[in-house]
Simulated scan of single mutants.
Amino acid sequence: MNVGFIGTGSMGGMLVEAFIRSGALPPECIAVANRTPAKAERLALRYPGVRAVRSNAEAAAGRDLVFLCVKPLDFKPVIDEIRASVQPEQLIVSITSPVLLAHLEEWLPCRVAKVIPSITNMALSGVTLCIYGSRIEPEQMAMLEGLLSHISQPIRIDEKYTRVVSDLSSCGPAFMAFVLQRFVDAAVEETGIGREEAERLAAGMLLGTGRLLTAEGLSAEELIRRVCVPGGITAAALKQLDSELDGVFNRLIRTTHAKFREDLAKVDQSFAVKH
């Protein structure tokens, strides 16, 4: 399988590295291009065999699979550049949520899909969200999900739920890390415990909690019940937490959805130019 990556920033570079480290792709099968060529060249130096090419069209031409890992408003110029190089049997995969499958299918003559990765894929863990266009064949779905299964659990979703599932799987690690950081900050401030020790304890707790909720099959409700003794310390703290967090995550989801709609409107405008 020959795979191209257009964009080697935070998520694009992470995907290249994860696929190589997991053994899903040998470096020799990968071509990378970036708006700043030096970034693609640094990635190629880090993983001998990866080819840094000078144009997006070269990264797309002749590949079985091409990942578009660029910002929403950069999509239209990239598509304009690669469109003449793309063949009907190729699969183009966007990792950018405000770019809709309808945008891709209107402007590209090939099969298209959308994938929402997560930073947890760096640890060969977490999920990857998969959304497919109307022209894709079952064997291409299987090929893409087989590739993604080396670094995550691929899950098919309906495009109308893109934002909320992205909140949970892709933005969620940052949300949980923010809460954990505040927890550590408070522990240090209130008790004087060393920050390094508090961070190590909190990170170990989060890792173990994740395993209980996945490998051990506990639900969040069951986990809380098993830790929380009626009338105990955890119960008192949870009562306080419940009061302080009332409505916080509803407002968080409203915020992410509002920003998504704003980005989507800008993307729609960028694609409004006639063929």
Rank of each mutant, 00 (worst) to 15 (best):
I30M: 11
L129G: 04
E41F: 00
L73Q: 12
V229P: 08
E145Y: 00
T234F: 02
A202D: 13
L207V: 13
T96N: 12
L43V: 05
Y161H: 07
R254I: 13
R35M: 06
L91F: 01
E58Q: 10
L207Q: 13
G231A: 10
M205P: 14
P26R: 00
R261A: 09
R156F: 09
R156A: 14
N34E: 12
V179S: 11
M122R: 10
R63D: 13
E81H: 00
G232N: 10
E89Q: 08
V115K: 00
C29H: 11
V248H: 11
E105Q: 03
A38M: 08
V78C: 01
S149H: 10
R51L: 14
L45N: 06
E221S: 01
E81A: 06
E41G: 00
F178V: 14
D246E: 14
D242T: 14
C69E: 06
D242I: 10
L65G: 05
D80N: 03
P26H: 00
L104W: 02
P27T: 04
D158G: 02
V188F: 05
P88L: 09
R63Q: 13
V99C: 04
Q181G: 13
G7M: 04
E105S: 00
G204M: 07
G232Y: 04
L148R: 03
R211F: 10
A187Q: 10
V229R: 10
I82Q: 02
T96H: 04
K71V: 12
G231S: 09
V164A: 11
T255G: 09
N56L: 03
E197R: 09
S97L: 01
K76V: 11
T120W: 06
T8S: 11
A215G: 09
A84T: 01
V229M: 15
I92W: 04
F260W: 10
S170G: 12
R182S: 08
V70Y: 01
P27N: 02
A174H: 04
P48K: 00
E216L: 08
A186E: 15
V165C: 11
G62R: 00
E216M: 07
V184A: 05
A52Q: 08
A265Y: 01
K259Y: 13
A18D: 15
T36F: 06
S55Q: 01
M122Y: 09
L108T: 04
V267T: 05
N250P: 14
G231Y: 04
V32G: 06
L68T: 06
G247K: 07
L15P: 03
N121Y: 05
S270L: 01
K239S: 15
A61W: 00
A61G: 04
S85K: 07
S152F: 03
Y47T: 11
I131H: 12
I155W: 06
V188I: 01
K114F: 03
L104P: 02
